[in-house]
């Protein structure tokens, strides 16, 4: 299954680049840079999630940041 997903990522990225690239004119240097940076970060994240599905996510970060407040709130708010 993993190699199908890995292959699909490549297909999606190639399609995206082909469709978008010809629509951008020559003056749009900034847009092209932004496009490339976003696509590359997307590809890196995609393969990261594909190869290591258990990599800690943003939810864990938010959970860690708010842990003290969550605990205080839990002592106030009770399930009935």
């Amino acid at each position: 299954m993993k190699w199908i997903a890995g292959f699909m990522i490549v297909v999606i990225v190639i399609l995206m680049v082909i469709i978008e690239w010809q629509k951008m004119s020559r003056q749009m240097k900034r847009e092209k840079t932004a496009f490339i940076v976003l696509v590359i970060s997307g590809v890196i994240l995609a393969y990261l999630l594909l190869l290591f599905p258990d990599v800690p996510g943003p939810t864990q970060l938010i959970d860690a940041v708010y842990r003290p407040i969550t605990n205080i709130l839990k002592s106030w708010i009770t399930e009935r």
Partner: peptide, 22 residues
Amino acid sequence: LSNYQPIVYPLGLLLLLFSQWV
């Protein structure tokens, strides 16, 4: 940027990945 259209699809890819990642 002067135009947001080029970054719509790349951000969509990131959005899809975030939805799996959350």
